Computed example of a mutant assay.
Amino acid sequence: MSYPPYGPRELGRTGVTVPPLGLGCAPLGNLYRAVSEERARDVVRTAFATGAAYFDTAPHYGLGLSEERLGRALRGRDRAAYTLSTKVGRRLRPLAPGETVDGQGFVDTPARARVRDLTRDGIRATLDASLARLGVDAVDIVYLHDVEHHLPEVYATGFPALAELRDQQRVRAIGFGMNRSDVLARLVADLDVDVVLCAGRWTLLERTAFDDLLPVCARRGTSVIVGGVYNSGLLADPSPGAPYDYAPAPRALLRRARRLAAVCAEFDVPLKAAALRFPFGHPAVAAVVVGAATPEEAGQNAELFTRDIPDALWHTLVERGLLAPDLPLPLTAPGA
């Protein structure tokens, strides 16, 4: 499947390439609802069939369940046929007898607990455990995960440990994954970061990353993977009660999302298709990753991503005050 007008892009200067649409694998770890083993496998198969063969996972997702299921679904595949990323910063350990933990949104998870660990040995042990669950010798990208409240440890041991793994060629690209674009901007400015995964801050509703993160990435040659393009669901279905940033959407944002949907409808473009395409207006963006709990969802995301979107839609959104005039637009005819 083609992704006009976008093809695979290199992350920084690493030689790692990603297709423009990737699969976020949190749902494979039973995020909010249980997913069967068969359904998880079919989601991965659909991603391959549609060309979305970049898979992003983490130990945090289902306390290792996402990695385990993804590993089983990838078994037997040509390792060169897909790009794989996971995360470090949370080490997993077995539960003690009688111990319970907060699933943090994940249900029916293995009997494990998360432990924040940004030490050199902890980073290496976390990655080794992920490789074992995934059943691979190496991943292409490793992100430090949700470390915005642990920056002293990041600078002292966490990032140096990742840089060492990159120097040893155990991993090809390294970076950070979180939804705080201001913190990501600081880290990219200070450190030799290949790629960041920024969730929810560069969307049809959110320009935060445009103001702080994206200029630094463009200057430093750091690639950006965009997650959370639907802003937790508001841009997927802007109905009353829709979530935004994991909480009920404020009324003003709900009204704006509904106005965005109405303009998209004038051009016969689903709001979700516009949300998927919008981040590519900025040249630092290499890909978007979107979760799917069913093969139908994965197939729909791919179909939406390939929709023709006329440049007139983007210009109309600017004219009606729904996009700021200084924002870069994903035009098919740049300069038009």
Rank of each mutant, 00 (worst) to 15 (best):
Y155D: 06
H150D: 15
A199L: 10
P160V: 11
V147T: 13
D237S: 14
P152K: 13
P243H: 07
A242R: 08
L191V: 11
R207W: 07
V216L: 02
A156K: 14
V224D: 05
E164S: 13
H149I: 04
I174E: 05
S232Y: 05
E206P: 03
R172H: 11
V193Q: 04
R219F: 02
D167V: 06
V154W: 00
G177D: 11
V193T: 13
P240Q: 13
E206W: 04
G177P: 04
P243T: 10
E148Q: 15
T222M: 02
E164F: 08
D192R: 14
G175P: 01
L234Q: 03
D194M: 05
D194H: 03
Y230A: 10
F210D: 13
L205K: 05
V196M: 11
A163C: 05
Y155K: 09
V188F: 02
R170G: 02
A218Q: 14
C198R: 01
G158L: 02
D167E: 15
R186P: 04
V226K: 00
F210V: 06
P152D: 12
H145N: 13
L162V: 09
R207P: 05
V216F: 01
A236F: 07
P215I: 10
C198S: 15
G158M: 02
V224E: 03
T203V: 05
T157N: 08
L151C: 11
P152E: 12
L151Q: 07
G175V: 01
D192H: 11
I174G: 04
I225P: 01
D192M: 06
L234R: 04
L234A: 11
Y244I: 09
T222D: 06
A218P: 03
I174F: 07
D190P: 00
G221N: 10
P243Y: 03
Q168W: 06
V224I: 10
W202M: 08
D245W: 06
R170F: 05
R186N: 07
V147A: 14
F159M: 05
G221M: 10
V193G: 06
V229D: 12
R219N: 07
I225S: 02
D190M: 04
T157A: 14
L214K: 02
D192K: 10
A218K: 10
A161M: 06
L204N: 10
E206L: 09
Y155T: 08
P215F: 09
V229K: 13
A242K: 03
R220H: 12
R172C: 07
R219P: 03
L151M: 11
G175N: 00
R170S: 07
F159D: 01
A163K: 03
T208I: 06
A242Q: 05
V183C: 09
V171Y: 05
V188R: 00
E148D: 14
M178K: 12
E153M: 08
L165S: 03
G175H: 00
G177C: 14
V193N: 03
G175F: 00
P160S: 12
R220Y: 05
I225D: 00
V154C: 01
R170K: 15
D211T: 09
Y244K: 12
L165F: 03
H145F: 11
L151I: 10
A242V: 08
L235P: 01
E164Q: 15
L165P: 00
L165V: 11
L151T: 08
S181I: 03
V195Y: 03
G177R: 06
